[in-house]
Amino acid sequence: MTTRIAVITAGITEPSSTRLLADRLAEATVRALGGPSAASVDVIDVRDIAHDVTNHVLTGFASPELQERLDLVAEADALIVSSPIYTASYSGLFKMLIDVLPKDSLRDKPVLLGATGGTARHSLAIDHALRPLFAYLGALVSPVAVFAASEDWGSTEAGRLGERIERAGGAFARLLTGAPAPKQVDPFENVTPFEALLADVTGAA
């Protein structure tokens, strides 16, 4: 059975680091699930439907283009979101789309959180803004999220960001499948007993 994943990305620039983060989170999740045969991805770029979202907020009616995207979210098995952080919170455009989603469409739906910002000072916005929002909506929020600051895309930090993305994708895949977390290697599991060390020292003396 193929897992249907909807991706909401709220970047407003072109190209967008917010979109890039969303794409890489989706790719990591699909890999962890077993590849394209195990999961399909539909991307909803809020920038493309900004006017439709605004009109829906004002009139209560969705255009056909917006309704198509709202249906993708409602019918998806899982959701990946990525929002830029402005003034320590998610963007207003992102929140507007969330506000017009069908009632209870996110209830019990697994959600992976991602966010981008100019500096690492905004990193806590995932925990004090995004996570409470989706918890309120009844979603099953993945415990591992990714915040990417501008410097994280640099050559010296890109590797670490990639590791965090892979970790988040793996954790989200386990949430979707119910698979157990990989066993952690105990660095003290095969430590030489103190008595043996002492015997070696005594024998050498």
Results as ranks from 00 to 15, higher is better:
187 P>K: 00
5 I>Q: 03
184 Q>L: 15
36 P>E: 10
69 R>P: 06
118 G>Y: 11
121 R>P: 00
164 R>A: 12
145 A>K: 02
140 L>E: 07
133 L>C: 10
159 G>K: 15
143 P>C: 01
138 G>S: 06
105 S>H: 08
72 L>E: 12
157 E>K: 13
32 A>W: 02
177 T>E: 04
71 D>C: 06
204 A>R: 15
151 E>R: 04
35 G>T: 10
9 T>K: 06
187 P>G: 13
26 A>I: 07
191 V>Y: 06
159 G>H: 14
8 I>C: 10
102 P>E: 12
132 P>Q: 08
144 V>I: 06
79 L>P: 02
185 V>S: 13
75 E>V: 03
69 R>M: 14
43 V>S: 11
53 V>C: 03
132 P>F: 11
158 A>R: 15
194 F>I: 13
29 T>G: 03
144 V>W: 08
165 I>W: 01
163 E>K: 15
152 D>Q: 08
25 L>H: 08
21 L>D: 09
130 L>I: 07
77 D>T: 02
182 P>W: 10
1 M>D: 05
66 L>G: 01
20 L>M: 14
85 I>C: 07
183 K>A: 15
172 F>H: 06
59 T>S: 15
115 A>L: 03
183 K>S: 10
137 L>R: 06
2 T>R: 11
99 D>K: 04
44 I>M: 12
164 R>S: 13
38 A>D: 00
31 R>H: 03
22 A>N: 07
143 P>R: 03
7 V>L: 06
86 Y>C: 11
49 I>E: 01
22 A>F: 11
190 N>H: 15
38 A>S: 02
15 P>M: 11
182 P>C: 10
3 T>I: 12
181 A>L: 13
200 D>N: 15
62 A>E: 11
181 A>M: 11
61 F>A: 04
20 L>T: 11
116 T>Q: 08
37 S>M: 01
182 P>S: 10
102 P>K: 09
88 A>F: 00
48 D>F: 06
26 A>W: 12
3 T>W: 00
75 E>K: 15
36 P>H: 02
17 S>E: 03
52 D>P: 00
86 Y>V: 11
193 P>I: 08
151 E>Q: 09
149 A>T: 04
120 A>P: 04
91 S>I: 08
140 L>C: 03
182 P>T: 11
115 A>Y: 06
15 P>H: 13
104 D>L: 14
158 A>F: 14
97 L>W: 04
204 A>W: 13
165 I>D: 02
22 A>G: 07
8 I>L: 14
84 P>A: 10
175 L>G: 03
52 D>F: 01
49 I>Y: 01
82 S>A: 14
121 R>K: 07
1 M>T: 03
182 P>R: 12
144 V>L: 04
94 F>Q: 07
161 L>Y: 09
125 A>L: 02
117 G>E: 10
146 V>H: 04
153 W>H: 12
192 T>M: 15
158 A>H: 14
154 G>F: 13
169 G>M: 04
92 G>N: 13
46 V>E: 01
21 L>I: 04
120 A>Q: 01
95 K>M: 13
59 T>D: 12
141 V>M: 04
119 T>R: 00
62 A>Q: 11
41 V>M: 02
112 L>P: 01
155 S>T: 14
75 E>H: 14
21 L>N: 08
25 L>K: 09
165 I>C: 03
89 S>D: 07
1 M>V: 02
145 A>E: 07
121 R>C: 00
65 E>K: 14
